[in-house]
Write a protein that binds this DNA or RNA. Structure first.
Lengths: 218, 218
DNA sequence: TTTTTATAGTGAAAAAAATCACAAAATGGC
DNA sequence: GCCATTTTGTGATTTTTTTCACTATAAAAA
């Protein structure tokens, strides 16, 4: 019923509200949020209406209350733990990237088959042998995984993840994964994203590059 | 008129065709491609029809001819050069990633403000001072740039890029960039992509996670 | 207190995207 | 060479998403 595009907008509203909040603002109007996120004010109100979020006629929305509701809907009230499989370029970049922690997403561990990548340094995110994935995921009740391995290994890694109990996957491998239907797979294909830009540059971009986002549930 | 979702499908058809081609196949039917990419056969035919691509009734499509047409439409016949600004986590990962070259995208150089990152090693992608961006982009007629800097610097980097003549940008900074309307900006927000998965896991994913892709032209 | 005004909430309308369904054409078998 | 079959190409239809437009309401002003 609610689709991914809508959730992404909600997440953006949340981010915009955070900024406004830390700037000391107390209330917003739908058109402020619309500007901040790049959509129409109607869209903002429709999205909120879909989730039963109400503001005050003429008074806008109280930022704190609104943040609370969005955080609740988006599951941002408790920290989410994720694991990464693949300690290569992308996996390593994700581990070093500070943006996840800021949003309450904790990278609990990374798994690889290459012993040279193993790491137990205090303070760092541990990089462990792939064989330990299953136990780690079960012991820590992890439901989300990131696939950052070469495409050739991706399906196999997904199968391991699902067997371990993971239910949602962010997949960076440029390949179509097959999985049971009670599992969510969100694909991010970096090359494709860049190629899309190239297309619009080559073929007169005077047209709007309309909406973007690809996904796949499974 | 044609939107990003459609272009992404075209790029996927192209990839699937490459695989089929290297497996020795000579022709495909719309439903083969549909399966490979995860859409319906009608969608495939509609997409092709939109670009004037014809097959043979009852005979399907000749893979080589089809690849040729898609490559032409997608600008894959000549190698595309891009620059990256930001040699941090994401920038470094992109430079090391082999996937771009495989698709005919050449990362010509990376720019940073941190002298510790500068690199002129033979064979590596050069990492140069940001001041050289303008001249480099002009001399090499580069039209595409990747923003891989912290969000605080992203708008400034975009302005530099546009001033240098760049027309299309892949932006990894989690911030809404403002730009003239003759420029294409494609945003990739890694945290958001992961948070989307988290939402669907938390809130009973029994529903399909519909289509995904966000974009913004500017 | 009454009036004015700004803004939320939402059903209706429009636009966009995907799917359907079927005619037209090409192939292979007989 | 004709018929049966398969698959394309596309107009029509359906579904989904977005925008419009108007009512209700709360706040401020008079």
């Amino acid at each position: 019923m609610v689709n991914k595009k809508c959730i992404i907008r909600l997440l953006r509203y949340k981010n915009a509200l955070h900024r406004l909040n830390s700037l000391g603002f107390v209330k917003v109007f739908s058109d402020n949020l619309a500007d901040a996120v790049g959509v129409t004010a109607s869209q903002v109100r429709k999205d909120f209406s879909l989730f039963g979020i109400c503001g005050n006629k003429r008074g806008g929305y109280q930022i704190e209350a609104l943040l609370g509701k969005l955080n609740h809907i988006l599951g941002k009230n408790e920290q989410q733990k994720v694991v990464i499989v693949g300690g290569g370029n992308i996996g390593a970049a994700l581990m070093k990237y500070k943006g996840f922690e800021k949003e309450g997403v904790k990278i609990a561990a990374c798994f690889d088959i290459d012993p040279a990548k193993y790491n137990h340094k205090e303070g760092d995110i541990p990089v462990l042998p792939l064989e330990q994935l299953r136990d780690f995921v079960r012991q820590n009740h992890i439901k989300i995984g990131v696939i950052a391995v070469p495409d050739i290994a991706a399906q196999q890694v997904l199968d391991l993840m699902l067997a371990a109990g993971i239910k949602g996957v962010l997949n960076f491998a440029p390949i179509r994964l097959r999985a049971a239907s009670d599992c969510v797979i969100n694909n991010v294909n970096l090359v494709l994203e860049l190629e899309t830009v190239i297309y619009f540059i080559i073929n007169g971009l005077e047209k709007s590059i309309a909406e973007i986002h690809e996904e796949q549930k499974s």
